[in-house]
Design a protein around this nucleic acid. Structure first.
Lengths: 253, 253
DNA sequence: CGTTCGGTTGAGCTTTGTCAAACCGCGTGG
DNA sequence: CCACGCGGTTTGACAAAGCTCAACCGAACG
């Protein structure tokens, strides 16, 4: 009955009543974390998957005391824990960047989802595909783009992920990341992130202040970042595995 | 009846007769590619998943004519295409590095796997988890390690992936990658890879020639690379989602 | 033998990192 | 209301890591 899991799951596709009934077994609880708090750390036992209800989190690993790597940021309706689904213990840390509200998603109900609804299962695979595509783009960024391009690309990525839109992208959005986080996401030093961002600002690509980002010219920014739109999956899934429907939901022209 | 899919799937866990029966529906065909050939390219329609039967392949993207990024290398029993499972068209290219034999894995039979056997489905999730963990380690490497450490870490990774072993790691193995490929995997230039590798050789970490790699001292090399063993999943899966069996298959001490 | 392909080496250059100081907005307490 | 301090950003000077270009080497193969 209107659980937050159903609400957030709906972002990925309209749900039938049957599908809602399957999801409705999940407890409708929320967990709240203050900005800066740690949700879990490496090595802890995995209790749940989560869906982000509100706020920003980030997934990170610490190499030694000084070196940190951030794998990804978790926004509204993003899942947390799917890639760790067959581990018993967390591999990474999850921190709340802003105040963060999560909907726990108990693993023990996953059997139901997978056996009772091929469509819900497909949504799961959609999410997995999407996340792997994002990870691959990050690998390209970190490995082969300049600092300037890395930052530009990341801003475009967030503008697209924000609110699960299609391809248009938000032009103004909440952006609570500190430059230190961007640095750890992109494999840069914080001061170099600063240089890249002031550069983007001075050249008319973006405007920003402490907490909001405004993209002045999406096309110009995407062009600079050599942004490839094909990895962005539309939330409207309607694929099947039969290979008969060649023209359905094409990703490429 | 003894299809290569059953053979390779067995690497991930002993299969019951029921599970084998489900997999036995797959055609037992093999596709052969010569070293250097292209298996598929970005934008092509996705026909199959694959399992590697023999040889090495690599998954890459080209940014422009000069810049290439390699996401991963595909070895014996690795799957190809799982992260793209909800796309209609390929996002990346697959090339044969050596002569390469693949077992096609038609998507239309996936429904059977997921609905008829929770265990086969769990093996799928094991694979997905493992691949995401490998991708995350690559992100750490590219973003936060020195060239020397990147190369060292990559060699350790391959020694562990080779042949789906547990934690021991092979000390001598076939290594057909050119330095150019290592460069594209790790975000380096080919000449810098050369420098790093001769350095590793001169300091007694490794020996190698055109096609084989020998790790002189695993511990020393892992130590240098700050290698974190926790991301390596044992092929013996026996997890469940009930959270009752706290001590089973622990990843951390 | 000569050619080709990949690997190695050196020199100089570019990008990015490091360190330290200055700055800026904002909240707090006097 | 102002001074202060704090956290985060910016700037500058310098150092280091890695890149590019070009020459050279050496094994494999015709």
């Amino acid at each position: 009955m209107g659980s937050c899991i159903i609400e957030k799951f709906s972002y990925y596709g309209d749900l039938t009543d049957d599908e809602k009934a399957i999801l409705d077994k999940f407890e409708d609880s929320k967990e709240h974390y203050k900005a800066g708090e740690t949700v879990f750390t490496k090595g802890e036992k995995i209790e749940n998957l989560y869906i982000v209800f509100d706020g920003w989190g980030y997934i990170s690993a610490n190499l030694d005391t000084s070196l940190r790597s951030i794998f990804d940021v978790r926004l509204d309706a993003d899942f947390i824990g799917i890639p760790e689904i067959s581990f018993q213990n967390h591999l990474y840390d999850l921190h709340a960047l802003t105040d963060l509200t999560l909907c726990p998603f108990p693993r023990k109900h996953l059997d139901d989802i997978f056996s009772k609804s091929t469509r819900l299962r497909d949504i799961f695979f959609l999410i997995i595909s999407r996340e792997k595509a994002i990870a691959n783009e990050r690998i390209i960024s970190i490995g082969r783009r300049t600092a300037f391009e890395k930052v530009a690309h990341f801003i475009v990525e967030i503008s697209l992920r924000y609110g699960m839109l299609g391809m248009e992208g938000h032009n103004s959005f909440n952006f609570p990341l500190k430059q230190e986080h961007i640095a750890d996401l992109l494999g840069l030093s914080p001061v170099h992130v600063s240089r890249a961002m002031t550069n983007l600002k001075n050249n008319g690509y973006i405007q920003y202040n402490r907490s909001t980002m405004h993209i002045v010219d999406q096309d110009k920014l995407r062009n600079l970042a050599a942004f490839d739109p094909s990895f962005v999956l539309k939330p409207d899934i309607s694929f099947d595995y039969s290979n008969d429907n060649v023209d359905k939901n094409q990703q490429h022209a």
